[in-house]
């Protein structure tokens, strides 16, 4: 692969970022004085059962036996939608890092004063949109360890899910199911552009109401198996084990990830 200058990559990245710009949401509703608060909890399961790490006990739809060793990811731009089309955007912190091995990251007190009322859904961005995915914006652990290399688009991994899978009897391979900014390549293998792979997630059955001074605790659950089963049947033999430089594989992963999240409970 030949080198492109950082500057040219940067401008190409900007070009793609501008192409991906979404239709803006309507203006948020004015914030009333009566507010509550929200705490998000994060959990990880496989088809409804709590994830058991480091154990080759799962089989995906393609028939690959696999185990999960690490799960780390960002969600950002959480929005609480009202039925009338208005919304409240979580703004105190617009990005949150989740690491299954770091208990403190599994609880996110968003810190916002949430206007009382009824909300009919919650959406968020999985990963960080390219416009906000700025290299070096995190300088401290653990977020800094999610850095996505500059030559590959920079910013941070959206997802780092590491594990092992059984390629054949007595053959265990590692896999790095990593998603971030994608690349497009010319026929010679030169990077000629970048792709914003961050995607919107609408949590099903996420309606809730909140009253003044009330704290809502909302659990968001990631089903690991969802990354591997639909709409793309993920086969490590086909999509690959290491996908940071395979935009087609990352695109498939993103399609699968759209329904990987659900509400565990709202208390």
């Amino acid at each position: 692969m030949k080198n492109l200058s950082i500057i040219s990559l940067f401008f190409i990245g900007l070009l793609f970022a501008s192409c991906d710009k979404e239709t803006p949401l309507p203006d948020p509703q004015p914030q009333p004085s009566n507010t509550g608060s929200i705490v998000f909890k994060f959990a990880h399961n496989v088809n409804g059962l709590a994830l058991v790490k480091d154990s080759m006990m799962y089989t995906n739809t393609a028939g690959n036996k696999y185990e999960i060793n690490e799960i780390k990811y960002f969600i950002s731009d959480v929005i609480l939608h009202n039925a009338n089309g208005t919304y409240y955007s979580i703004s105190n912190t617009d990005k949150h890092y989740v690491d299954n091995d770091i208990a403190s990251t599994l609880t996110w007190n968003v810190g916002d004063n949430i206007p009382e009322g009824s909300y009919d859904s919650i959406t968020f961005t999985f990963g960080i949109t390219m416009a906000k995915n700025i290299s070096n914006m995190f300088v401290n652990a653990p977020e800094i360890y999610m850095a996505w290399p500059e030559p590959l688009g920079g910013g941070y991994h959206y997802l780092m899910m590491n594990g092992k899978w059984e390629k054949a009897v007595d053959t265990i391979n590692n896999f790095n199911f990593h998603i971030g900014i994608g690349q497009t390549y010319d026929g010679l293998g030169n990077i000629i552009g970048f792709v914003d792979n961050a995607f919107k997630v609408k949590l099903p059955a996420s309606a809730f109401s909140i009253s003044t001074s009330q704290t809502r605790v909302i659990q968001i659950v990631m089903n690991i198996e969802s990354w591997f089963n639909s709409p793309i049947v993920w086969d490590f033999n086909i999509q690959g084990e290491n996908i940071m430089q395979s935009q087609s594989a990352m695109s498939d992963a993103c399609k699968n990830g759209a329904d990987a999240f659900s509400i565990g409970y709202i208390n």
Binding site: M1, N3, Y145, A147, P149, E150, P151, N176, M244, Q245
Partner: peptide, 28 residues
């Protein structure tokens, strides 16, 4: 050196996952 930088920071060499950041280590 630039070619080496690319090997270091792509899946070709994949050094960056453990030796990335300005510290050139995750300390993990």
């Amino acid at each position: 050196e630039l070619k080496g930088y690319m090997i270091f920071n792509t899946e070709k060499g994949d050094c960056f996952h453990c030796h990335g950041t300005v510290l050139f280590t995750t300390n993990q």
